[in-house]
């Protein structure tokens, strides 16, 4: 197509609009779950591999400002810089951790960790595009999870600081518990499964829709409201 007219190019460089896999579901999630399901887009994530105990683990702990959680199914709050909400270090395996951070430039997290880890035999890889973060809050968060997840999420065994890599609605997820009351969870799902899981969550929320509001305090019309003995 040699005769195609060249479009008039603006003098400034073209800008790319930043988007994410759940951009098309954000509005539905907000409207249909009453804000109980939120999206945390553009979270910086990195996978850290290090032998523990060892120099690489110590280097990672210096960068993260917290000890690497060594107990399976746990996570710890971390501050790997970047500001915003505090990040997290999630146990993925005996020598593998997932680092989450609010970071304007996701590669910066990898660069900081890599600079500290690689010289002492560890590794850090940017996986920011691998997973999306969904936040489940409210009194029905546990019921919604229970509809498609076999892991026991009772606060007695799944309180704040615990995590699980498991299946939710048949999609692989990393589940973080952020509260001891069982009403605040973070779900990390692979980006290609994110829209599926968002739709699954919307469906699971249907039976709880409107239940977040306080119940109507009007008296039950069947029973007498005066109470006491009836003749």
């Amino acid at each position: 197509m040699a005769d195609t007219p060249t479009p008039s190019v603006a003098p400034s460089a073209p800008t790319l609009r930043r988007s994410h896999p759940l951009a098309s579901r954000e509005e539905d999630l907000r409207a249909l779950t009453g804000g109980s399901v939120g999206v945390r887009p553009h979270l910086a994530m990195a996978v850290v591999r290090a032998a523990v105990p060892g120099p690489a683990a110590r280097a990672a702990e210096d960068v993260l400002g917290t000890a690497l959680p060594t107990r399976p199914n746990t996570w710890a709050p971390a501050a790997p810089g970047g500001g915003g909400e505090p990040g997290a270090v999630v146990w993925l395996g005996p020598d593998e951790w997932l680092v989450l951070a609010d970071e304007p430039r996701p590669e910066a997290l990898e660069e900081r960790l890599r600079a500290a880890l690689v010289p002492v035999g560890g590794s850090a890889v940017d996986v920011s595009a691998q997973r999306m973060s969904l936040r489940l809050r409210g009194a029905h968060a546990r019921d919604v999870l229970a509809a498609g997840c076999a892991v026991d999420t009772h606060p007695a065994v799944f309180g704040a600081g615990t995590s699980a890599q498991t299946l939710l609605g048949q999609a692989g997820v990393v589940l973080l518990s952020r509260s001891d009351a069982g009403d605040d969870y973070e779900v990390l799902v692979r980006s290609s499964f994110a829209r599926y899981l968002a739709d699954w969550l919307l469906d699971a929320f249907v039976e709880h829709r409107g239940a977040e509001a306080p119940r109507d305090p009007a008296p039950d019309p069947v029973r007498p409201t005066t109470g006491g003995a009836t003749p």
Binding site: P72, N73, G93, P94, A150, V151, A164, Q165, L167
Partner: peptide, 10 residues
């Protein structure tokens, strides 16, 4: 041995 009891499909 790491994660505890999980469903067979995992």
């Amino acid at each position: 041995p790491w994660c505890g009891p999980r469903e067979e499909v995992e």
